[in-house]
């Protein structure tokens, strides 16, 4: 009996520990859930029109999906994989970032503003004026800063938390799409899609301290992520159909990893050994070994996979 209970407990904890990759399919109106051990889709969850941004609650229990076409956030229980609730969050939510306190910082593409919502209550906490066509949102790991990119005003808006005041507006290359912070919250990185470049920003001075063109006219970069050790940056190359690996210090391109067509989204697993990409036009997720810098698996998902996140 004891053995049986122990076995059951072991199975339960093992099941819980298996990382799952959640992917929004923008044109499929659903979310694919991939078992990160088998690299197979274990479930497909219908969520509504045009799901794009996706993120996880700090405790890992809930997955949030920005359903742009329905002007809301859908909440999925990460254990049962069921939609448990949804709430409205203003016009055309595109992407968001989850604050360590659980709040969602959402870009409302049609409204030139970012809004802050408490996903437990669905209540709006704050609204912040930003530039035209806000898109990428990042929150510093220390929780004191947010960056919202405005695609048609070409700016990174650096916002102080909890004041929710814009403290700097940093002009960058045409159509900034995504941003990310370093683990120590001191540095930020952003991609500009039309100018095809990466910019590195010193957060304290709000100054651009480095930039790197991706040296390929076809590169229309989207997501950017620092490696877990902070020494490298991964950039989804969009139309270049490659992931660029940059040296964090110099921004020099170390490696280019071919993936599927129109690579947009990036997510890293807990120990940073696997990078998952959404390859939009290929309808697949590529799984990259970040040590060998090569694709070790491709997982067919839904139509036009866009956003991606991992529940560990």
């Amino acid at each position: 009996m004891k053995t049986l209970i122990a076995l059951l407990l072991l199975t339960a904890s093992a099941a819980q520990a298996a990382p799952r990759v959640f992917v929004t399919n923008e044109e499929g109106n659903d979310v694919s859930v991939i078992d990160a051990v088998s690299n197979k889709v274990m479930q497909t969850i219908p969520v509504g029109k045009r799901p794009r941004g996706i993120g996880v609650s700090p405790d890992g229990k809930e997955v949030y999906v920005a359903v742009s076409g329905d002007n809301g956030i859908v909440v999925i229980d990460s254990a049962t994989l069921k939609v448990v609730r949804h709430f409205n969050c203003g016009d055309d939510p595109e992407t968001f970032a989850v604050h360590p306190n659980g709040n969602l910082y959402i870009s409302n593409e049609e409204n030139a503003k970012a809004s802050v919502y408490n996903p437990k209550t669905g209540a709006m906490v704050a609204e912040i004026k930003v530039g035209l066509e806000p898109e990428g949102v990042a929150i510093s790991p220390d929780g004191t800063r947010a960056i919202v990119t405005s695609e048609s005003t070409n700016m990174l808006h650096l916002i102080a938390i909890p004041e929710h005041k814009t403290v700097a507006n940093i002009l960058v290359g045409a159509r900034p799409r995504a941003a990310a912070f370093s683990r120590d919250s001191k540095t930020a990185y952003a991609t500009s899609e039309i100018s095809g470049e990466v910019k590195k920003v010193d957060v304290a001075s709000a100054k651009v301290i480095g930039k790197m063109p991706l040296a390929d006219d076809k590169a229309k970069p989207k997501d950017i992520l620092p490696s877990r050790d902070g020494k490298r940056l991964f950039v989804a190359g969009g139309r270049a159909n490659r992931v660029f690996v940059l040296d964090e210090a110099t921004l020099a391109i170390q490696q280019e990893i071919p993936v599927g067509i129109r690579v947009w989204g990036l997510a890293l697993n807990a120990d940073g050994t696997r990078l998952y990409t959404t390859d939009g036009a290929s309808g697949q997720v590529s799984v990259i070994d970040t040590v060998a810098n090569k694709v070790v698996a491709t997982v067919p998902v839904g139509k036009m996979p866009w956003g991606i996140t991992i529940v560990n």
Partner: peptide, 14 residues
Amino acid sequence: TRTLALGAALACAA
């Protein structure tokens, strides 16, 4: 003034 009061990096300073 409000931005200055925050004591943070400034768009204007930049």
